[in-house]
């Protein structure tokens, strides 16, 4: 890492903290994939990594390259935009696919429709 030798200490500490925070958040999200018990619960787990986990790592990268090159380097924003716009789409598609499959199999634990089921009227 000889390229980092001339970096100011405060920047190095800041970059290290940002990258570590992002990695810890992502790890907790992925641990959720292992620990949570149900598919619909596990659907929430990856969003930890794709929201603030990724934001922290990207910020660290932007800060590092901007200081190292002596000019603003912000093209990491593109990755952030891409992930922020695509993650909800994939997770929504997956949720709907799972709901569809569960309903086809007659799984009782998922709601039969988005509308509340009306109680049949007493005769």
């Amino acid at each position: 890492m000889s390229h980092a030798a001339e970096l100011p200490l405060i920047v190095a500490v800041l970059v290290g903290l940002l990258v570590l925070t992002g990695a810890v958040l992502t790890l907790i999200g992925s641990l959720g994939l292992v620990r949570l018990g149900d598919f619909y619960e596990r659907l929430h787990a990856p969003t930890l990594g794709t929201s603030f986990g990724m934001a922290c790592v990207l910020l660290g990268s932007v800060l590092f390259f901007s200081v190292q090159k002596g000019r603003p380097v912000v093209h990491e924003v593109l990755i952030g935009l891409l992930v922020v716009t695509t993650t909800p789409v994939t997770l929504m598609l997956l949720g709907r696919a799972a709901l569809h499959r569960d309903r086809q199999e007659g799984n009782r634990r998922v709601p039969a429709s988005a509308r509340p089921t009306r109680q049949p009227r007493a005769p």
Partner: peptide, 23 residues
């Protein structure tokens, strides 16, 4: 000094991310 700080924190983050990939 800043070299060592950056080296160890990024290495640590990479290990954590590797663990996340394992999960």
């Amino acid at each position: 000094m800043s070299e060592a700080v950056l080296f160890w924190s990024v290495l640590m983050a990479q290990m954590l991310l590797g663990l996340a990939m394992f999960c």
